[in-house]
Design a protein around this nucleic acid. Sequence first.
DNA 1: AAAAAAATGAGGGAATGCCCTAATATGGCA
DNA 2: TGCCATATTAGGGCATTCCCTCATTTTTTT
Lengths: 218, 218
Amino acid sequence: MTRIVIVDDHAVVRSGLRMLLNAVEEFDVVGEASEGNEAFKQVEEKHPDVVLMDLSMPHGKDGLSATSEIKKQFPTTHILILTMHDDEEYLFRGIELGASGCILKNAPHDELMKAIRQVAQGDAYLYPSATKRLMEDYMSKMKKGDSVDSYRLLTDREREVLALVAKGYANKDIAEQLIISVKTVEAHKSHVMEKLQLKTRPELVEYAWKKGLIGYSK
Amino acid sequence: MTRIVIVDDHAVVRSGLRMLLNAVEEFDVVGEASEGNEAFKQVEEKHPDVVLMDLSMPHGKDGLSATSEIKKQFPTTHILILTMHDDEEYLFRGIELGASGCILKNAPHDELMKAIRQVAQGDAYLYPSATKRLMEDYMSKMKKGDSVDSYRLLTDREREVLALVAKGYANKDIAEQLIISVKTVEAHKSHVMEKLQLKTRPELVEYAWKKGLIGYSK
DNA sequence: AAAAAAATGAGGGAATGCCCTAATATGGCA
DNA sequence: TGCCATATTAGGGCATTCCCTCATTTTTTT
């Protein structure tokens, strides 16, 4: 019997998953949470085998932090990330923080079951397109002789600047917020563009959004 | 027996709703669709009483267009919009296009059931906070002596410009895309700012995102 | 310790954005 | 029909911002 806790901010998604999984004998949904703090409490109480974790939760603690804290406190709990889009950036950060895998929310049911079984056994799971990308990326890095662990292409500072750029702030405003000079902001920005091989502002914005760097909660 | 078609791009949400609703005798989920075109086909074939429609569907036809077309062809079909956030802009457009109501995806189950029953009977349904906002807005409009039908604050052109601004395009690029002069773009932009009482670019970006004017699919 | 990468910043020319003004269409309403 | 409000279009001029090249200090990696 695989004991499962579901973490997602949408009640519909939670009950959908609950019913879906409880219909299978081997699965037992023992708890739900709508945000990170609640998620931690649930894990503390229920000691599940697997946590299905959505990353984008506007209210309360976000999924990445929750993942990190749960793994720190309960290293044997396997966390499967639920994601809407197939974005590497988010994915790799999640895996760094200790998640066992990642599956798309719109994956077929049997694929979801398979993923849960896999992570419950302590294996990793990645949805097919991510696996493919991972391999391509790995190979291209190897060819170039780069070190493989440089997935987190951007530095924290660069990510910070990029997020603000994508939100529409002028370089001047970004400089003020980060308490650095405009020139430095410009430098970070151009480094980002160089690294990502992007040439225009809209491309930056799109990248930032797709990778989940933003997140207007409301 | 209320016959229902579910339209949402996430398989998990679809099966969640299906199981949830089929557990109640009076409801019968007769079809599902992951995007607008498929939704129309389902309505054509199944002639449901109610369509649960998600608006944000990255692939295929979007929810607003689908709502409009379904209501045009099958005026007796009641459409209940499923939304993630409580954003007026989207909501009011949906209602203009013929939707009978709108409910948040994370609403409690019994609230969802209630909403479906209500729209199935031909009544309107709005989630409480929207109703509240609607009334406040209505009253403030009345006080100012404005005509009440001025919800669609922005014109199509303005919305178009705003979306591109939020995506990070320079006015020059927007001008090229829309085949108008830079000056015109600037005018639209400043009109938008005036209407929305926004003063900075980041505020514009945030507004555009929250109201769902954007939507990077991927 | 040496080398690479990250973070910070400057100067100057080109590009962009913003404010004020305004012509032409469009649509409802008296 | 004629008028008023709004939408869409656009020019001129000035301030700001952005981008490119180059340079220094700090941190990380080897």
